[in-house]
Design a protein around this nucleic acid. Sequence first.
RNA 1: GCCCUCGUAGCUCAGCUGGAUAGAGCGACGGACUUCUAAUCCGUUGGUCGCAGGUUCGAAUCCUGCCGGGGGCGCCA
Length: 553
Amino acid sequence: MTPQQISDAVVHVLEGLVTRGAVALAEVPGSVVVERPKVRSHGDYATNVALQLAKKAGMRPQELAGLLADALREVGGVADVQVAGPGFLNITVEAGAQGRVAAQVVAAGASYGRNEALAGRSVNVEFISANPTGPLHLGHTRWAAVGDALARVMEAAGASVTREFYVNDRGNQMDKFGASVEAAALGRPVPEDGYHGAYIHELAEQVVAARPDIVDLPDDERLVAFREEAYRLQLAEQQQQLEVFQTHFDVWFSERSLYGEGKVDHGLQVLDKQGHLYEADGALWMRTTDYGDDKDRVLRRSNGELTYFASDTAYYVDKRERGFDLCIYLLGADHHGYVGRLKAMAACAGDDPESNIEVLIGQLVKILRGGEEVRLSKRAGSIVTLGELVDLIGVDALRYTLSRYPVDSPLTLDVEEITRASAENPVYYVQYAHARLASILRNAADLDLAPAGDDFDPALLSHEREGDLLRALAEFPRVVASAAQLREPHRVARYLEETAGTFHRFYDACRVLPQGDEEPGDLHRARLLLVAATRIVLGNGLALLGVTAPERM
RNA sequence: GCCCUCGUAGCUCAGCUGGAUAGAGCGACGGACUUCUAAUCCGUUGGUCGCAGGUUCGAAUCCUGCCGGGGGCGCCA
């Protein structure tokens, strides 16, 4: 019996009581909260419906709970129901009903955990979106891990998801970047407001190596040539590193392309039709204050140049016209000032800022190195890059470390510690559980035993540790659904850690395979099925985080 | 000044969108391998959930105020 089935049963029973007139309720909720109690004596599952509905029904909570308990005891698969405390219902499930979860998991296989929470939604998830003026650093790496995991989780919840990287390849930062590389190549001092990292000199060397004639170009041509060559190299490096990091983008969207293809003009027209544009002081404005922004925003400056915000607007309109009904932006806390104007902009475009656009603000990552905080500055050149981090701790450990925390919690990572502690990373706890499971299944195969969901006695899985594990497995679809709905992929990681622990404790107490000359029995077969189900859940969960599930460790 | 965000064990952090006795890892101390992987398990240690009010059967969780850390408030990108 899964939590969902229990919830359905409670609703059904409640409807019955209302129909019989035993309970006076204007409205029966479509689902009720079914949770796993922390304390064993509170049963396998508990629900607080009676507490929630007592007032509306004009009854004392315990009275309503008593009626529900009597009716629920008659439900198939339910072993016992107790009323406890102020009116909780503590439900105990029959071992057989609970054990069948293992067969359900194995039958579903790789699709176990998938659900319909976001079915039918077409989502664009934009993340990282760094300037192509330097290597990706730890901050970007956090968004890479979290953004990709979020996309995976939302897909598992039934959404159609596109991962998108917006390349800010326009504007004066690009010129400063080009000028810095050029200066480095010519042996001149890099401009004060330019980029100063060692990577600038490496880029300069690469550019000159690829195009030796570049230094002889006329000044203005030379600057452009350096800028474009360095841009090409830097973007390629970002792309290559993200692929190594198992983060694949479906779309790399160049800001410049908005201009080349007239999309900015088109975007402005769309907004103009909605009536939120006006001219003042020689500039073109969007009246974002119509929708809660603190001030109106300039789209085209009085000198005729379009602002970055104009690009953003056109880009958003373009996304919507490409068919996405939800555009998610993952931004660092240093950009949270954009939230108001982005939402207002969506409203000005005629959309619903509550449903068409979401901005997830993530706290920045603080880095300690040698006990000192490393100030992340691309221009000063003090950065810890994605490439360095991958080399230090590996893709799996890095992805996992960054995606096991909620994005709105600030993260402090000590570079030495994260390197030294990589062996203690919780990811290995989960992966080790998976490898153990795989090992049992290999050993079973050597004994000609294979997990068979259609030939086992679920009631044999009655050990306390087996029950714990079955309930954990039954929880997985709810975890995936809530992670998707709340946009919190870290819930999957936390769930995996818990479930891995539950498995390790099961393993410690329950022998799965026959020993010595022992003949395989029904209990062996039942436990083997439970092992197969657990391996599927851990494997599916790790996949949602983009982390590998090793067969051996 | 205005806005956002965070404040939970010595450290890093969870806390299932209001539930029952607030958890995990690391650290410290002590146990468990002739048996399916000891990268594991078990026990001990450890808390005024920043502070003060409020909402209700019930608050770490929601509301208000204050204190403290971080961040944001350009016709910059």
